[in-house]
Design a protein around this nucleic acid. Sequence first.
DNA 1: GTACGTGCAAAGAATTTGCAGATAA
DNA 2: TTATCTGCAAATTCTTTGCACGTAC
Lengths: 136, 136
Amino acid sequence: MEIVVERLQEHNIKPSMQRIAIMKYLMEHRTHPTVDEIYTALSPTIPTLSKTTVYNTLKILSEQGAAQTLTIDERNTCYDADTSPHAHFLCKSCGRIYDLPCDDAVKKVVDTDMDGHEVQEIHYYYKGICKQCKED
Amino acid sequence: MEIVVERLQEHNIKPSMQRIAIMKYLMEHRTHPTVDEIYTALSPTIPTLSKTTVYNTLKILSEQGAAQTLTIDERNTCYDADTSPHAHFLCKSCGRIYDLPCDDAVKKVVDTDMDGHEVQEIHYYYKGICKQCKED
DNA sequence: GTACGTGCAAAGAATTTGCAGATAA
DNA sequence: TTATCTGCAAATTCTTTGCACGTAC
């Protein structure tokens, strides 16, 4: 619990009850949930929670660097508490998003071929059929 | 003109007047336009054009591999006639999307660390401030 | 004639906004 | 107090759907 509060404070976010719950959910569920998934999961525990607050909170978390916004899924925006450089794989069949290690060679690209642009965010997305779905 | 028709046919898309116009626009404007930009640009020339047709056509182009769907911009989906492997840079200030060469080392990743997943699409997105905006 | 393409209007879904009440330093 | 946070409802925006008409082979 305390680690969640610290995480918020490290990123200059005042730890309200709702924000703690949302940050905590993101840290414990590395499934890259959508706004709706988070809302649905927390609603029973926090009956007064509104979707607006989930939207607001995720926006702040993302802006302050406490979470990452993923646009890999065209339908819904997803969120990830892991802000370290890593790639994502979206399975077109089951919809799951997997984390993938980000090769060092890949990171190097940023320092080289950027034509003078200043890079603040890196998103590596792969899409296809995941191992599990291929086996079925 | 003929090259546009060929491009459609190569991807098993019947070349209607609207489809040719949209494919042509994409091939001549490498600015990664949105549905709205394409619609607005072509409307004067094709007064009866509907946005539904633009949506339909871009969906087909993307499904058939004649164009690429980009989700780098959280607000709008963008389209790119260049389907060869290359990365994209989105400037958070001016909103422009730049093409970037895709390092060979990057492509290699697909064959190695994929945990058995079958990759069908690769999207490399970078975000930040572009050279031009930094100079202003 | 039959299958396909187009475009209007309506529906649907995701997200944002305005604002009033609740909360906290 | 004084800022900020929350949550409802309404508005907005993007995209899809249903359907009738048009077109082409």
